[in-house]
Amino acid sequence: MSQLIEIRWHARAGQGAVTAAKLVADTALLGGSYIQAMPEYGPERTGAPLKAYTRISEDPIELHNNITNPSIVVVLDDTLLDGVDVVEGLLEGGTVVLNTSLSVEEVREKLGVGDDVKIAVVDASGIAMDTIKRDIPNTPIVGALSKVTGVVPLDLVKERLLETFGKKFAQEMIDANLESVDRAYEEVRFA
């Protein structure tokens, strides 16, 4: 059986984590993979901490449960680090991608994880404000995820975004989203 990639998303409701979880899944599907994407349903209040999940595999996915041992964790809001154990169950050699203006070292210390965990930081909110003009870090963070983990190639992410946004949004908005992905891909720092 080929490798199953499990991604857990941590965010606050309203930041678009579910959309991002689906974007990554849809991108992988575009590349021919089997996928799963789902939120962990709870009280739906804007600002409440939430989790979402993405699974990617070359084989049909049989698991139908929450992801408790992810190889990748994405954090869309660094204020969650104070209240949520985002690295809980993270597999050895796993990766954490964060939307933050903290440095890799600062995050590593805050999370209390060693060098075996790859930490990647990007100011996805700042990039979103610059490009999309709203603090919706979900699209840019996928660019960072692509660079750091390679789970989905950048060109496929953009192809998928075009497919989704093409029907609904003005060209200006589409360009802003694509630019945000490119910028996060370039600006992400990791170690």
Binding site: A25, L29, Y34, I35, Q36, M38, P39, Y41, H64, N65
Partner: peptide, 12 residues
Amino acid sequence: LDGFITSHAMER
């Protein structure tokens, strides 16, 4: 179909 697990999860 199983509520949320299958009904609301996205699959291929």
